[in-house]
């Protein structure tokens, strides 16, 4: 009897995992292998894969020498670095300001509204605000005597405009999680600091920021993983940008696969994207760990 019960629990452990295991085999294991095989073939999905021509790693070679793909890669790098860092910084500032403020529930609700709004809708609304001749933003600028900006049609500005919208829409989500983190910091720490004469800025820098590091790590890592896959906003807002100046990796993969039906090249692009995301995540974890943060386990 004594020997039997641990065995039972072992068996139960596997049974409880069964749905997940089945799912991951079909929708993770198979796709990853299949996708890798496709990336070494020339295939349009219309004929059986077995009849597709084997091309080795030539798709990868092509992409790394392709100007448009490299531009997409560079755009996405810029996008992810700037949106994640700026949005997180602003979110941190507002989380601290709003924590314990009057009407904090109202403020939090207002800041969070963009998070629950479909990105596609956000892109469309901002597309109107960004209109060069009769958009709201340019009319603001006019008040200060600034000439109209071609927010979404000037190739040098378009990506920046999309990032601005992305930052705007991302603040609330990070803010909410940071608020949860703030509530876990014991009030005693602040009381002690006050007795020692530390002002609000010192308290922020020496108590709040260090103690929020795990939360910041989490948000940076997940933010980066998400930002590298950004699709909705550039796809909706960048339609009129000239010469594909806002092309992102995800858009490139989507277009190559589902518009040009070049499944092989698209899969190779997706794998290159995976390599980037994998390295970036490791880098984020490593940087924070050097700053004295353990991973989560």
């Amino acid at each position: 009897m004594r020997i039997k019960s641990p065995n039972k629990r072992t068996l139960a452990g596997y049974i409880f995992l069964l749905p997940a295991v089945l799912f991951y085999s079909l929708f993770f294991g198979f796709p990853v292998i299949f996708s890798f095989i496709v990336s070494t073939r020339r295939w349009n999905m219309l004929v059986p894969l077995s009849r597709a021509r084997v091309v080795g790693f030539s798709h990868y070679e092509y992409l790394l020498n392709n100007e448009l793909f490299m531009r997409a890669l560079f755009n996405t790098l810029t996008y992810s670095l700037i949106t994640v860092s700026v949005s997180l910084t602003i979110a941190l500032i507002f989380a601290v300001l709003i924590n314990g403020a009057k009407f904090s529930v109202l403020w939090r609700f207002i800041y969070f509204a963009p998070v629950v709004t479909p990105q596609v809708a956000i892109g469309t609304i901002w597309g109107y605000l960004y209109r060069p001749n009769n958009g709201l933003l340019n009319s603001f600028l006019k008040l200060f005597g600034i000439k109209p900006v071609y927010w979404l049609t000037d190739p040098d500005v378009a990506l920046f405009s999309i990032m601005l919208t992305a930052i705007w829409s991302g603040i609330g989500g990070s803010m909410l999680i940071l608020t949860a983190g703030l509530r876990n910091i014991p009030q005693d720490y602040y009381d002690a600091a006050k007795i020692d004469g530390a002002g609000p800025f010192k308290q922020f820098w020496y108590i709040t920021v260090p103690l929020l590091k795990p939360t910041l790590l989490f948000l940076t890592a997940t933010g980066m993983i998400g930002a590298w896959q950004v699709f909705d906003l550039p796809f909706i807002m960048g339609r009129n940008a000239p010469a594909k100046s806002v092309m992102t990796v995800s858009w490139y993969v989507y277009e190559t696969a589902f518009q040009s039906l070049r499944m092989g090249r698209a899969s190779a692009g997706a794998f290159l994207l995976f390599c980037v995301i994998f390295s970036v995540t490791l880098l984020v974890l490593w940087t924070f760990r050097r700053g004295g943060i353990e991973g989560y386990e």
Partner: peptide, 16 residues
């Protein structure tokens, strides 16, 4: 698995 971009899965899952 959370680190894998959805773009790896689009083609195979569509195929499935």
């Amino acid at each position: 698995t959370m680190m894998f971009p959805v773009f790896i899965f689009l083609i195979p899952v569509y195929y499935l």
